[in-house]
Amino acid sequence: MDLTLTLLGAAFGGVAGALVPRAAYRFAVEPAEPWRTRCPQGHVLAGPWGGWVGLARCPSDGPAESGCRYGPGQVVAPVVSALVCGVLAAVVGSRPELAVLLLVTPFAVLLAAVDGAVHRLPDAVTLPLAATTVALLGATALLPGHGGNWLTAVAGSLALAALYGTLFLVNPAGMGLGDVKLALSVGAVLGWYGWPALLLGTFAAFGTGALFGVALLVTRRAHRRTAMAFGPFMLAGALIGVVTAS
């Protein structure tokens, strides 16, 4: 394990993760509502790229004001992003696909935060993420020293999306279209490392989701009909599959 690379990966994850809460706050609305354009205190969210990029805080209005903070995961998002990026850097090492995995991790944390808050995986993130992931892995396959296969990445992306699409058609109440679209990215990353990684990551997603559901039932924080966001477990399964296969 390259300690320097691990620390650099964690540092990148922490900095990128600090930008997640603002975007998560803007995306965390019900399907019929527009993306938020103001903070809870009414400040217009301005800044780079239409105000989507920046910390989830507004400046104070005066000496007596402390300035508002908003968005889910003010501390959790940067910590999770830093930990995941550090782990990926440690297990993947200096292979070129590490850059792709580090780049997609903050977006994965963003999707997990939004799905956890409102049970929604916005198309504005899932679809560009899928296309970008497949394209970047394709470019990575042209570089020496890579540790995967682009054709299985594409096949894995389509196969996992087909699986989740079938589950959606069978039981729309238990699986959302957002999960199907997220499966395109998850399948590409897992498929890059081969079919065993794809199977492991998929089973891990359902396994961790089932364990969490049982824990909620045991602690009486939910009942059998309680809806549960599945996106975070898909992403956790992807991490397990990548770590195991690397």
Rank of each mutant, 00 (worst) to 15 (best):
R69I: 07
R69K: 13
R69V: 15
R69T: 15
G71M: 06
P72W: 05
P72F: 07
Q74V: 12
V76N: 00
A77S: 15
A77P: 10
A77L: 13
P78M: 14
V79C: 07
V80R: 00
V80G: 06
S81R: 00
A82P: 03
A82L: 08
A82V: 09
A82E: 05
V84E: 02
V84H: 03
C85G: 12
V87I: 15
V87T: 13
L88Q: 09
L88A: 09
A89D: 02
A90Y: 15
A90F: 15
V91C: 06
G93P: 11
S94E: 13
S94N: 14
S94K: 07
R95T: 11
P96Y: 13
L98H: 01
A99W: 15
A99R: 14
A99M: 15
L101P: 00
L101G: 03
L101R: 01
L102R: 02
L102C: 03
L102Y: 05
L103S: 07
L103V: 12
V104N: 04
V104Q: 01
V104W: 01
F107P: 00
A108Y: 14
V109H: 10
L111R: 04
A112V: 11
A113L: 11
A113E: 11
V114T: 06
G116P: 09
G116A: 07
G116Y: 06
A117W: 08
A117E: 15
A117F: 09
V118Y: 12
R120N: 04
L121G: 11
L121F: 07
L121E: 12
L121Y: 06
L121H: 09
A124Y: 05
V125F: 09
T126R: 01
T126N: 04
L127A: 12
P128I: 08
L129P: 02
A130S: 13
A131Q: 02
T132P: 00
T133W: 05
A135H: 02
L136D: 06
L136K: 05
L137I: 11
G138D: 09
A139R: 12
T140P: 03
L142T: 09
L143N: 00
L143E: 08
P144N: 02
G145H: 03
G147E: 08
G148H: 01
G148V: 04
N149C: 04
N149S: 09
W150Q: 05
L151N: 06
T152F: 13
A153W: 01
A153F: 03
A153V: 01
V154A: 11
A155P: 00
A155G: 10
A155R: 06
G156E: 11
S157A: 10
L158A: 13
A159V: 15
A159Y: 12
A159P: 13
A161N: 14
A162F: 05
A162Y: 04
Y164H: 04
Y164S: 01
Y164R: 04
Y164A: 01
Y164W: 08
G165F: 12
T166R: 14
T166Q: 13
T166I: 15
L167R: 04
F168D: 00
V170C: 14
N171E: 12
P172F: 13
P172C: 10
A173R: 10
A173S: 11
G174L: 03
M175V: 13
M175Y: 05
M175D: 02
G176N: 01
L177V: 06
G178V: 07
G178A: 11
G178N: 05
D179R: 01
D179W: 04
D179F: 04
V180Y: 03
V180T: 03
K181N: 03
L182N: 07
L182S: 05
